[in-house]
Design a protein around this nucleic acid. Structure first.
Length: 552
RNA sequence: GUCCCUGUAGCUCAGCUGGAUAGAGCGGCUGCCUUCUAAGCAGCGGGUCGCAGGUUCGAAUCCUGCCAGGGACGCCA
């Protein structure tokens, strides 16, 4: 990438300037290349000279001046200059910019892919909601962040596995089974009380009725323990199927659905517990078994096996992470959790350290809550009471494109408002359509060109010389950099801003530059440009999991 | 009480891990459709970057202390 090439040029220039005695000896810091916000300052700039002033004991401006004569000419760069207080600015050659249109067209749908990950194995686990009820909007946020990150990191050259972990054992499963049993009995006209810690949402009533409709009272005829168990199994399967379908409608699909239960069945759980015991991180006290996280600097220890013999959620997650790192050998594991799991983060990091795995290989993104509103009115969501907006309802009302864009448009660690009224509006008020509209506009130009028999064949991109054209190209060239940034920072929300910027520069180009005209040569060149823009816009939408419409 | 996240324009939020004059969308006001989609474009107005210190050439960004909102502190998940 050009950014790296420029950093390399600078590094080389520094070394040569030092060798020539123009600069004193010092160790070079990491050279950061950025895009100046003011276009007059060129395409790329670096503030190394400012950073070095102290160590070199020179004025930043003098350092910058000393170095630029040592910067070797490269075919991309038109000029390198120095601006007070000491910035080094690089301006790209217009001819080189124009040529990038051909380069983008040649890469086609692969444009934006970079070899950053070098095929490293990454697992991204997200959503992973308990299969005890329908998933709601808050989960949708994790789903969108996760699936987008997967798309981007795949483009970044990582080998990504998308995974959903579901807790099909444990106390919440018991509560689910017992609640379903009560609703099932009630649906058949029998007396039954809902457990207090149960799931009181209406969906449980519907679920029970559905099973009665399909299978009648057969579970009632079994011995109660067996009936509860078998019925629970059916309920779990149905909920999981719904979850899968809802997520699919949000354009989220997984490579692996991982069952908690299998961790016990295949011996991973016992294995990791034995290992931790051997390393001295397990203690018995107060009738339960504890993980001694205090030995790793945590505030308190945590129970892994309750006094009644059943393992905790935490214990299962320990086994699961053992499985991820040791058994399946992922180079990196990324978990996306809701804000209510914040307290779980440092515990899990401690576990990973205890297993002698470098804790930086575990990255945890915690996404904050979503406040739903309809215009001014706040809509409360709570799973336990069943008072919520399900993802399904949201998708039916708003549609997947708008849902994805809006849920993606905020940094994960910021709380966000989701205004359903705004999201539903198919108008200028809604930023979602702004980007798609640009894509549709391009499609429309291409259609007209076809009708008029205009073609991009033999188009000479060196005819692309005006500012609106070059600005569009410059923006298109940022996509690979963005893929890199997101892969490193794990912040997929930047995509939505990039998409809007790209659309904006396209709309400006559209205003200033007629594509299909009497000038055949220029028409061909611009058709190339516009095709490339469509490609980049389409890829961007694609990375966000959105559709790129041909017409609107 | 302890820990974590957040505080930037009227509203919703970006701000590229310390850089050049702090941005966008929406809302408000004013213009632009006989020519490839007006779901668009151009312009105007809008700011003690929560508050107070500190670090340095330079802070919305880093450190400390307050204030406000949210979340977590369970043998729930």
């Amino acid at each position: 990438m050009l950014k790296q090439a420029i950093a390399d040029l600078l590094t080389k220039a520094f070394k040569e300037a030092q060798k020539a005695g123009k600069l004193p000896a010092f160790t070079l810091p990491e050279i950061v290349i950025e895009h100046p916000q003011n276009p007059e300052h060129g395409d790329y700039s670096s503030s190394v000279a400012l950073k070095l002033a102290k160590e070199a004991r020179m004025k930043p401006l003098d350092i910058a001046k000393a170095i630029i004569s040592f910067i070797t000419r490269s075919p991309e760069i038109a000029k390198v200059d120095v601006a007070p207080p000491g910035f080094i600015n690089f301006t790209l050659k217009k001819e080189w910019l124009a040529k990038q249109v051909n380069a983008i067209l040649a890469e086609g749908n692969g444009y934006g892919n970079i070899p950053l990950g070098k095929g490293k194995k990454i697992q991204i686990e997200f959503v992973s909601v308990n299969p005890t009820g329908p998933i709601h909007v808050g989960h949708g946020r994790g789903a969108v962040l996760g699936s987008t990150l997967c798309n981007v990191m795949t483009a970044g050259g990582f080998d990504v596995i998308k995974e959903y972990y579901f807790n099909d054992s444990g106390s919440q499963m018991d509560a689910f089974r017992n609640s379903l049993w009560a609703r099932y009995r009630q649906a058949l006209g029998k007396d039954a009380a809902m457990p207090e810690d149960g799931y009181h949402g209406n969906y449980m009533v519907d679920l029970a009725k559905e099973i009665v409709r399909e299978e009648g009272d057969r579970y009632l005829k079994m011995p109660e323990v067996e009936g509860i168990d078998k019925l629970g199994e059916v309920g779990l399967t149905k909920i999981l199927a719904d979850t899968r379908e809802d997520l699919k409608n949000l354009r989220v699909e997984y490579d692996v659905w991982y069952s908690e239960k299998t961790l016990y069945e295949n011996g991973q759980f016992d294995k990791v517990m034995k290992l931790l015991k051997k390393k001295g991180y397990i203690a018995e006290k107060e009738g339960a078994t504890w993980f001694v996280s205090t030995a790793l600097g945590e505030d308190k220890d945590n129970v892994v096996i309750r006094s009644n013999g059943s393992p905790t959620y935490f214990a299962a997650d320990i086994a699961y992470h053992y499985n991820k790192f040791i058994e399946r050998k992922f180079d990196k594991v990324i978990n996306i959790w809701g804000a209510d799991h914040m307290g779980h983060v440092s515990r899990m990091k401690a576990v990973v350290s205890a297993l002698e795995i470098d804790p930086t290989r575990l990255e945890i993104i915690v996404n904050q809550m979503v406040t739903m509103r309809r215009g001014g009115e706040v809509v409360r969501i709570s799973r336990r009471t069943g008072d919520m907006i399900t993802l399904r309802e949201l998708l039916e009302e708003v549609g997947p494109d708008a849902c994805r864009f809006i849920l993606l448009s905020r940094a994960a660690d910021a709380q966000m408002d989701f205004d359903m009224e705004l999201a539903k509006k198919q108008s200028a008020e809604n930023p979602v359509y702004y980007v798609q509209y640009a894509h549709a506009r391009i499609a429309s130009i291409l259609k007209l060109a076809e009708e008029r028999g205009a073609t991009d064949k033999g188009g000479d991109v060196s005819l692309l010389t005006t500012e609106p054209e070059l600005t569009l190209i410059r923006k298109m060239l940022l996509l690979p950099e963005l893929v890199e940034t997101i892969s490193l920072t794990l912040e997929p929300h930047h995509l939505t801003y990039y998409a809007q910027d790209l659309a904006t520069v396209f709309h400006a180009f559209y205003r200033d530059c007629r594509v299909v005209s009497d000038n055949k040569a220029l028409t061909s060149a611009r058709l190339k440009l516009v095709k490339a823009a469509k490609l980049v816009l389409g890829r961007t939408l694609n990375l966000m999991g959105m559709t790129a419409p041909e017409r609107m």
